[in-house]
Amino acid sequence: MLTQYLFYFLSFLAIFSALLVVFSKNPVQSVLSLIVTFFAIAGHYVLLNAQFLAAVHVIVYAGAIMVLFLFVIMLLNLNEDSEPQKPGWIKFAATITGGLLMVVMIAALRSAAEMPAPQKVDASIGMIKNLGHVLFTDFALPFEISSLLFLVAMVGAVMLGKKEIHNP
């Protein structure tokens, strides 16, 4: 019962702060609401018994990425006045497309709700021990391949960030 209340509370918090992210005029306020959203989602992960994911989510998103966001906002000195105004028809088109995607997602989730509940799943599936086991056995190749991805990103960041020395 408690989990259910917690679920509703976290969902409300996540959706409410997500709306604040979009609607608040001040960029710093947006970022702060985004942090709340991330924490609410991390709470959902804990409810689903995925502690590792919850911890990583908080560290990476609420920690690292949010700090970057704040830095960029401060360095660019963004505030209410400097927010660019989009023309009306772009807002209209964006509302239509976003609304259409929402309709599709609602239809998708409704079809899932009509299905019989899945058979009992292993509750310990999200635990660190199981996660590590799967990562180093079944998913060993993707795990290793993702190092290529990071290597590319790092080499690229160095290349783009390096100061050019122009030989005359």
Binding site: L141, P142, L148, V152
Partner: peptide, 22 residues
């Protein structure tokens, strides 16, 4: 998962390379 990783490795390389003439 492999499809996703493959697409990402290729795309991220291309993003970087497209901007290589700084």
């Amino acid at each position: 998962v492999m499809l996703f990783l493959g697409i990402e490795i290729l795309s991220i390389s291309m993003y970087i390379m497209a901007g290589s003439q700084k």
